[in-house]
Computed example of a mutant assay.
Amino acid sequence: MAENARTEDPNYRAVPVERIGKKHYRATGANGATLDFGQGEGMLTPVELLLAAIAGCSAVDVDVVTSRKVEPETFEVLSSAIKQNEDGAVRLDDVEVSFKVAFPAGAEGEKAQKMVDRLIKLSAEKDCTVSRTVEHATKVTFINENA
């Protein structure tokens, strides 16, 4: 991929994606972690990855703080949306992120449980880069480097 001045920016983020096979792709993170996705048995689709990224971003925000108090007994986050077709152009709308989080009985569990609503709100309004990016009009540019 082409290097440019953007790559010198300390806030620059990039994830290369390579084709592994028919409808099978691999994303590689900056730390070398990989995630396979695509279409077919056992793979998440790109749309499912987007929903997972939205849920995952807020899940991390809530989990990091609450688990300092106590480990949760239940920690499930569901990200859902409605697929819209606007004259042949498709997108998601009405994205909803639902949390089901429960902690053990006791003082620490109660403290952690009381934090959940506030942490979800902070994540939605300030901390979750993924959902905030989706919510705001974000410029996306596609470049054919072979052209």
Score class of each variant (00 low, 15 high):
Q113W: 02
R91K: 15
G40Y: 03
V70P: 03
R6M: 15
F75T: 02
G40W: 06
I20K: 15
A102P: 02
E86N: 13
M43L: 15
G40T: 11
E86C: 08
A112H: 01
Y25K: 01
A27S: 07
R132L: 15
G56V: 00
S123D: 00
A30Y: 02
T138K: 05
V60Y: 08
S58I: 02
H136A: 15
K69D: 12
E8I: 11
V140A: 11
I20V: 15
N146M: 14
E73D: 15
A2G: 08
E86F: 14
D87S: 14
T138E: 07
E76L: 11
P16C: 10
A147P: 04
N85F: 03
E96N: 12
F37Y: 09
P72R: 00
A107D: 13
E48W: 04
Y12C: 14
V90F: 15
P16I: 10
H136Y: 05
S123H: 02
T129C: 08
Q39H: 13
D9F: 06
K22P: 01
S58D: 08
P104Y: 03
F75P: 00
T28A: 07
G56N: 04
V140K: 05
N31H: 09
D117K: 10
Q113S: 14
S123C: 07
E8N: 13
L78Q: 12
M115R: 05
A137W: 10
H24S: 06
V134E: 00
Q84S: 14
N85M: 03
E71P: 07
S123G: 09
R26C: 08
S123Y: 00
Q113E: 07
T66P: 00
Q113L: 07
L51D: 02
